[in-house]
Design a protein around this nucleic acid. Sequence first.
DNA 1: AACGTTAGCAACCGCCTGGCG
DNA 2: GCGCCAGGCGGTTGCTAACGT
Length: 447
Amino acid sequence: MARSGAGLVEGGSGGLKKGPWTQAEDKLLVDHVRRHGEGNWNAVRRETGLQRCGKSCRLRWANHLRPNLRKGPFSPEEERQILRLHGLIGNKWARISSHLPGRTDNEIKNYWNTRLKRRQRAGLPLYPPDIEREIALLRAQNINPFADADGGVSLPPPLLYDAGNPFALPPAVPLPPSGSHSPLINQSYPLLNQMQGMQQQVFHLAGGHHQSPQQQPVFHHHQQHDGGAALGHGGGGGGFVSSGLPPLPTRAHELPSNQFDTSSSGSGGLLESLLLGDDHHLPRQHNPTMVKVNSMPALTYRDAGSRQPVHGGAGAGSDSDEASHCQPGEDIHHGAKWNFTFGRTQKTTRCKRDHRLTKHVVASGNRCVSEDFKPAKRRTPSEAGISDLFSGVAPGSTPGGWFSACGGSTAPSPGPSSAITDEEFNLEMQQFMSLLPLSIDEHSWNT
DNA sequence: AACGTTAGCAACCGCCTGGCG
DNA sequence: GCGCCAGGCGGTTGCTAACGT
């Protein structure tokens, strides 16, 4: 990679500096935005002398300097929201972040990737059962609203198919022999198979039209064995599946993150809108974190290592984020205390690093290779909860401890938010599954 | 204390899209 | 229609702190 370390001064193009930002650079950028607002990032260099490219300025502003950013560990509800959204739309970090006030796409992406590695290493599915259930039901319930704006009925999207996701299965395509299934499909992602069948059935019963074979994407099952090399865009080049539940097709409204408002916390409307693939029609609340900054709220920052604020006041925004209730220069979120500084963010965290999982699992492909698996050196309550969740928890039991327990803020996650009972869900699943070519054993999610 | 390992994060890169002339 | 430019997105990489041995 082009980065040459923390001490680097100049990059290769035009003498532009790369690497970590200094406090002085941050101040220049903040002052510029204060005067001119966001946008026109390339002008920053001209007008401030800041030796950074426009893209770098934009990134620095968006991820670290803009007001009302929310730092610190994700709350359990935020984690659930991320899981839900990711299950529905995949690696659309900007879109996901648009529904999490104060969170950046980069932050969410990092969170997800870390979590993904962690769970892959542990051989665990990515989504808690209740989340998977929510996603499955929401998709099933919204299986037929894919009507074109002009009234024409569009073909049902391959809800659980994504070319970039080797775990996704296309509708109405006979599954490969079980022997060729990825172990993760059969064991760690059994619900995918179930849901796939369920959605097909729901759509069929709703009078929908199946895609013709020509219209269906070909399921390249062998991708699972390519070590991730064949992953498509959504899967990224990281060499492993990005999502157990592939993104829904959308109408390709790739809106920049800053153009999003934050939807209401009511997941129903949000999810419905996401299912419809039309973010423009989402009912939204005003999101103070996404405003176009014309007059810059006072920022709070302090010298790294200093307890004294250097400038301005904190939480200038009027939103209800926790940050706005914190003392200047100090933001406490869910047990972690953060000092917002210019330069690298200094954090004093009470959230111990709770996982010791090797990165090379990522390179090894999309499943946990036995020789790669090393038990975590330390086992925190949250990790124990994750492991226990899939080792013997009955389907439908509340997945307490699923979400990270950083900072002791983890109230146990609430039970499945789906309205149906576990028994109802299981019954529905059995009914749907009976129509699928998979054996009942292959559908079992209690592995 | 030194070293190795790992997670988390910041920042970079390439690619894509939309606006504009 | 085409090219240029700015902005945005997703993926990747390197650094650093924390922790174990």
